[in-house]
Nucleic acid binder design. Structure first.
Lengths: 120, 120
DNA sequence: ACGGCTTCTTCACAGGTCGTTCACGGCGAG
DNA sequence: CTCGCCGTGAACGACCTGTGAAGAAGCCGT
């Protein structure tokens, strides 16, 4: 339609599709609901898909301030994103941890050895 | 660019059918009675179906002026629309809230089973 | 002009969601 | 074993949205 006003940027990676300017994320065609923080974090790490991004960099990108020692916000939000993403696309791994370095966004089918029974 | 949208423009989404130039809305073949504001708001958000539209944008589109801080008019009318729409088509969800972003028009059957996205 | 009814705004309160911070527990390296 | 790093669930106050109601304003037929 007569939208025309924004550079319709679209990040399409694996089953994920992100519209940074539309606030929308779809997983397997299904739109998922993210909070503002979750969305911003996803956008930033997804824009750097394939590379390891440090917590400090992610924090600066999303929170707009330098990461303070002991702050675990990034970890908490990475976890929230993992839950929503993996919940919407079972069998896929999206965000990988690199101990001591940071996180890396790279949607990949997870290994088939995983027991389907999600007990806890 | 489809300049002149002739008077026969019809928005048909799910069980809803809207004639922006006819002032008519039908839900499951039955016609709905909406006030001018309700109708205009529905037309604007429906024209952007599937996308998240911010309150500011909706206000500008419908009220023709910039949204003032603290104004809840959009919320109130979204509520009125939801009541009428869901009342005329039980089991369907039409307007979805995206906290911090705005509203998204997308008629979907509200799954009674298999919980989903409603929560964070 | 006048009453009666509908529509539009604005409030106020209730209920939900979000962002931040703790706390506890598992893991792997040294 | 001890320590540092990360995963995860929960607590809480701040903020955001849902909703019923009160009043003012606008419309209409008479």
């Amino acid at each position: 339609m007569e939208t025309a006003a924004f550079p319709e940027e679209v990040l399409s990676i694996g089953p994920v599709e992100i519209r940074p300017h539309g606030g929308l994320v779809t997983l397997n065609q299904r739109t998922l609901t993210l909070s503002v923080r979750e969305f911003t974090l996803l956008v930033e790490i997804a824009r750097r898909a394939g590379r390891i991004v440090s917590r400090a960099e992610l924090y600066t990108l999303v929170w707009g301030a330098p990461l303070r020692a002991g702050d675990r916000s990034v970890d908490v939000y990475i976890h929230k994103l993992r839950v929503k993403l993996e919940d919407g696309a079972p069998g896929w791994a999206f965000i990988h941890t690199h101990v001591g370095f940071g996180y890396r966004f790279a949607p990949e089918p997870s290994h088939p050895f995983h027991n389907t029974a999600t007990s806890r």
